[in-house]
Computed example of a mutant assay.
Amino acid sequence: MLVFPNAKINIGLNIVKKRTDGYHNITSCFYPVGWSDALEIIPADVFSFHSDGSFIPGKESDNLCVKAYQMIAADYSLPPVSIHLLKIIPIGAGLGGGSSDAAFSIKAINQLFRLEISLEKQQDYARRLGSDCAFFIQNKPVFAFEKGDQFEPVDLSLKGKWIVMVNPGIHISTIEAYSGIKPEEPEYDLKLILKEPLAAWKNIVKNNFEVTLFIKYPLLENIKQDLYDFGAVYAAMSGSGSTLYGIFEKEIDLSGHFERFNVWHGALM
């Protein structure tokens, strides 16, 4: 079975409170985008995992695709599988690529072996692998809260808009991103602001990580400003960085720009 785990962007990201378990409560809108990996899972005589494309640090046993299979195999009688991941979404880029790979592994295994696992149980499996993994089970826009693993429906469609995503290759760890954050309640209700026209978001819908990371990495702020200069209606950093995105009213040709960076562009879903 071949699937294409896609990335997501954060539209607004408020760090609200430090939790007793070491995590933070957040509020954000998660929105799926088309930048995707390729993941193949097929029955095999012995279990194996292979990856191509971008280098994935860490041991094979720590890969979330492997953990997803092992987690479900512990509850169901599954044969061995061969997993092949083509890693295209940048790693440590605020796009949820690893989380998406994990969630799509769960969905693919469920479909491949006709396990008929409910959406709710698939989300429970995904939450055990990472805070935002569960989002990719249904893979549609949501208002995310608590650790980013609880969701409410959000009435938001950017279908027909065009997005340009620029990753300059700066790897920002979660620990680094949170080190400069002071949690606080946001000044605005993100759910209400998202009902406003896209043009109203610019000075209101903010990613809290930008404040400190733009000081440490001025290039990120420069890219955001470049996206506005090229005509973006709204631009922001996604997650804890380092990918910047701009949302445009129509397709835009940026040939000759951002050539040093990893860039993806396309229509929004």
Rank of each mutant, 00 (worst) to 15 (best):
M1Y: 09
P5M: 10
K8W: 11
N10R: 06
V16R: 08
K18A: 05
R19D: 08
N25I: 02
I26L: 15
T27P: 00
C29N: 00
G34Y: 02
G34N: 07
G34H: 01
G34A: 11
A38P: 00
E40I: 02
E40W: 04
S54A: 14
I56P: 00
K59S: 13
K67L: 09
K67R: 15
K67H: 07
Y69S: 06
Q70C: 09
S82T: 10
H84D: 07
L85T: 01
I89D: 00
G92H: 04
S99F: 04
D101F: 05
D101Q: 07
I106D: 02
I106Y: 00
K107M: 13
I109C: 01
F113I: 11
R114N: 13
I117G: 01
E120P: 04
K121I: 13
Q122W: 02
D124N: 11
S131L: 08
F135V: 05
Q138S: 15
N139I: 12
K140C: 14
E146W: 11
K147M: 13
L156A: 08
S157Y: 10
L158P: 00
K159Y: 13
K161D: 08
T174E: 07
T174Y: 06
A177I: 03
E185Y: 10
Y188S: 12
D189N: 14
L192Q: 14
L192Y: 04
K195P: 00
E196V: 04
P197I: 02
L198C: 11
K202C: 07
I204Q: 09
N207I: 06
F209I: 07
E210C: 14
I215G: 02
I215K: 07
K216Y: 06
K216E: 05
K216F: 07
Y217H: 12
Y217C: 08
Q225K: 14
D226G: 04
A232F: 07
Y234R: 03
A235M: 06
G239Q: 04
G246S: 12
F248E: 02
E249M: 11
E249Y: 15
D253C: 13
D253A: 11
S255D: 07
N262L: 13
H265Y: 11
